[in-house]
């Protein structure tokens, strides 16, 4: 029993980070109808930025959470305004080529600047954990999950309780009608992309205390985000959150009961099954957006 609880705990905790990246991806898709193939690379850049700052200042990576979040929001906003925006009306092929190109560019830049090696931040609590009722709860993972919960609640509040958030949801539901109601779609695109990128970067910050940082780290998280988003239904934020936790649990159960090095296999197997039997997504909630 404790083995099962252990796997569930592991799955749910890492699911928080998956949720951050995936919600960012699904938000961008929902509002802009654009698939951001560089989502994982924004997480990677967020990780490296945090690591560099933490190493230079010799303080905890979390100190830079807000700074990195704001910086990546601005980065995303400007990137949308000056680059992504040009592809908005040009169909998916152009958008895919652009974001895929960005992903390759970011990865190569990281390789040139930071080299290919695995790095990790020096944090005193890297190996700290709580041992409750036969279940090991890793402290840095718990912290990252806490961050994910807080950020998700804030996002929910923004989308449901603020004028701007409601405007963004309106754009997601029907762009043309929203524009007719006086909502500036260009602003909404910028905001959505900025927030989407920010969420990936925040996920990156919360990974730094317990994960390795390397130029290719985004590939895994990016792929997981796609699986989650399809699972939860494209553009569905609540679906993405549920999907992320589900994927985390599937991964942890595979690691526990099948084999540690096959954990990703379980994830992709589940993904293929969903595509075969419920291509519209597991959850059809259209929650939040």
């Amino acid at each position: 029993m404790s083995t099962f609880l252990q796997a569930m705990t592991n799955g749910v905790l890492i699911g928080g980070v998956y949720a951050l990246v995936a919600v960012g991806l699904t938000l961008i898709f929902g509002v802009m109808n654009t698939v951001n193939f560089a989502q994982g690379e924004f997480l990677m850049l967020g990780m490296f930025t945090t690591l560099m700052l933490a190493e230079t200042a010799r303080v905890d990576p979390y100190v830079f959470l807000v700074l990195v979040a704001v910086a990546f929001f601005v980065f995303g906003f400007l990137l949308e305004k000056y680059l992504i925006h040009r592809t908005i009306d040009r169909g998916h092929e152009t958008q895919i080529l652009l974001t895929l190109g960005l992903s390759v560019l970011f990865k190569s830049l990281a390789l040139v600047i930071w080299g290919p090696n695995f790095r990790s931040a020096v944090v005193s609590y890297r190996l700290k954990s709580l041992y409750v009722g036969g279940v090991l709860i890793s402290y840095p993972r718990l912290l990252s999950f806490g961050v994910a919960v807080v950020v998700m609640l804030a996002l929910w509040f923004f989308l449901n309780r603020t004028e701007l958030g409601r405007a963004m949801r309106a754009s997601a539901v029907n762009r043309k009608s929203a524009a007719l109601m006086g909502i500036n779609p260009d602003l909404m695109y910028g905001l959505a992309f900025g927030i989407g990128i920010m969420l990936a970067a925040v996920g990156g910050v919360s990974l730094v205390p317990f994960y390795y940082v390397f130029p290719d780290v985004g590939a895994f998280f990016g792929t997981i985000a796609f699986v989650v988003v399809v699972l939860g239904g494209l553009g569905d934020i609540l679906g993405a959150v549920v999907g992320a936790l589900l994927i985390g649990v599937v991964e942890a159960l595979t690691a526990q009961y099948v084999a540690l090095d096959l954990s990703h296999l379980g994830v992709f197997l589940a993904f293929i099954l969903v595509l075969l039997f419920r291509p519209q997504g597991l959850i059809r909630g259209k929650g939040w957006a």
Partner: peptide, 15 residues
């Protein structure tokens, strides 16, 4: 039991 080099969570392994 084998594990992927540079893995980040040993809980499943140790369990």
């Amino acid at each position: 039991e084998s594990y992927p080099k540079n893995f980040t969570d040993a809980a499943p392994l140790v369990t």
